[in-house]
Design a binder for these strands. Sequence first.
DNA 1: CACTATACCTCGGCATACGAGGTATGGAAA
DNA 2: TTTCCATACCTCGTATGCCGAGGTATAGTG
Lengths: 112, 112
Amino acid sequence: MSERDPTLMSGIPELVVLRLLAQQEMYGYEIARSLKVLSQDALTLGEGVLYPALHTMEARGLLRSRPKQVDGRTRIYYQVTPRGRKRLERLTASWQRVSEGVDRVLGAPSHE
Amino acid sequence: MSERDPTLMSGIPELVVLRLLAQQEMYGYEIARSLKVLSQDALTLGEGVLYPALHTMEARGLLRSRPKQVDGRTRIYYQVTPRGRKRLERLTASWQRVSEGVDRVLGAPSHE
DNA sequence: CACTATACCTCGGCATACGAGGTATGGAAA
DNA sequence: TTTCCATACCTCGTATGCCGAGGTATAGTG
């Protein structure tokens, strides 16, 4: 009936997570909050997106993790590997390309 | 082993197709070419993406089509319905929001 | 004692991007 | 003539990966 909202973010979780972690080591929950704040609520990574993403990224060698006990709570801190940094560069370039492409199309002359 | 390039375009095909068609009626092949030119090669919609997308969009009432014979070739022209225009507005707003969000995250201070 | 915030996780569903492959016509080149 | 390219449509299978819903557990606050 009513069409479902399309995701409009593909690859974006990976891109922004890499970007955050490139600056400093962080743990999952922190990443989620940080992203919401930094993007001024434009980007919200649900836990169902974030955690699986972190796991596959680690499995691909883009991240490394280490658990840390803080106040009886377990946090898993992630950091970017060199391979992850290369990936970040590629994804960033790709994002810029595509987003400029979209903007050009959107900005194309309309006859309103 | 080597990670596969992520799509980095979700919802984008729908968005840009709607945008093009909002300006004028076009047929599939034309849309593909047009998109490539307008985006300066940043966006290339393969036929395996384009045609299925057009079909589902029509099924959802966002587009209407009519076939036309030109030089013994069949072209299927698409136009945007009012519903499609509403959708375009929503998607455009959403795109702007998200892309600005990403840019803010990417532009966040790094310590290089 | 209950509730919220913190902190992790998995599962199933679904949309959809994409390559590969298929049909057919018209025109230009070889 | 035959071959090839551009035009013009299509479908199928696969893989990805987003997402909501739900689950566990601790610490601190009302």
